[in-house]
Amino acid sequence: MDSIVPLRIQIVSIIGSIIFLIVIGRLILKGKLREEYAIVWIFATAALLLLSIWRNGLEVLAAALGVFYAPSLLFMVALFAITTFLVHLSVVATKLQKQNKILAQELALLRNEMQKTG
């Protein structure tokens, strides 16, 4: 069976995935990205890397799921993953905002307390 992925784009995508992995790794090491969030990106990149190396993978998966046009499977999965992650980030932002409010209120009370005693 002929692969739908030409060799050139395969090489490009493998290199791209590896660079992405390195960037994520560096961000974690520098403490700029919490491991918690990094896991999602590492898995996503690993999936991309897998598909880049396993040339027929996408087609095999698409055929197994009954998807006629293989690349659309990739788009669907990617869109779903991105949307899910964005919702997750909104949840995190909401939680942070709540905690932020409580912190600021506590700080205001404490400052007031300090002024009274000092």
């Binding site: 932020n100 409010k101 600021a104 209120q105 700080l107 205001a108 009370l109 400052r111 007031n112």
Partner: peptide, 25 residues
């Protein structure tokens, strides 16, 4: 009066709530 200062702007609801919390205290 008692002055409570937020370190940054949080919105009127958070300010009023802090006032209520202090009142309860």
């Amino acid at each position: 009066c008692t002055l409570l200062n937020f370190p940054f702007n949080l919105g009127i609801g958070a300010a009023v709530q802090l006032g209520f919390r202090y009142a309860r205290k």
